[in-house]
């Protein structure tokens, strides 16, 4: 018989892993564009680094959700809680919003960031607006994180 813990850990792993992949891809895409601009104009390092960091948040949200699961289960310094398979699956499902949305929004935010980096290269005075465009994508990762937190919080263990 499968322990509920396994499902819960799967949820935690998915949240951290998928959202992390999303951020890694996103930061990678933005970094490629950034390196291109920096070869032309090394003075823009500060702005470009900022833009590259923007798609990095999904990974943090995923880590946060996964960590919350571990705390909830008492795996971090507390006494481990026994959970039945139903609760385990509940936790798994609660992790899915940030896992899925983190993966996809990270990638798309990376693309938007890359485009914004191109914008900074051509029109440095528009940096303010260029930062806001990728942040529009991130909204949905924040909402997904919110959903995951509220769902996790509503599961009694």
């Amino acid at each position: 018989m499968i322990d509920g813990l396994a499902f819960a850990l799967l949820g935690s792993a998915l949240a951290i892993g998928l959202a992390g992949i999303g951020s890694a891809v996103g930061v990678g895409i933005a970094g490629e564009a950034g390196a291109g601009v920096l070869t032309e104009d090394p003075n823009k390092f500060g702005q470009i680094l900022l833009m590259q960091a923007l798609p990095g948040t999904q990974g943090i949200y995923g880590l946060l959700a996964g960590f919350w699961v571990l705390i909830k289960l008492g795996l971090f310094g507390g006494t481990p809680v026994d959970i039945d398979p139903a609760q385990g699956v509940q936790i798994l499902f609660a992790c899915l919003p940030i896992a899925i949305v983190g993966l996809l929004s990270g990638i798309f935010q990376g693309k938007t960031s890359a485009a914004s980096i191109g914008m900074i290269a051509r029109r440095p005075e528009e940096t303010g607006r260029a930062i806001i465009l990728p942040a529009m994508v991130e909204t949905y990762a924040v909402l997904a994180l919110l959903a995951t937190i509220l769902l996790l919080n509503s599961i009694q263990v």
Binding site: L63, F67, W68, I71, T139, V142, L143, L145, L146, I149
Partner: peptide, 22 residues
């Protein structure tokens, strides 16, 4: 509803800080 991010981001920095401590 968009303002819910205020809550989510605030909670996120607190939880990562707890993670650091743990």
């Amino acid at each position: 509803l968009s303002y819910s991010r205020l809550f989510a981001l605030g909670l996120s920095s607190t939880i990562i800080a707890i993670l650091a401590r743990t």
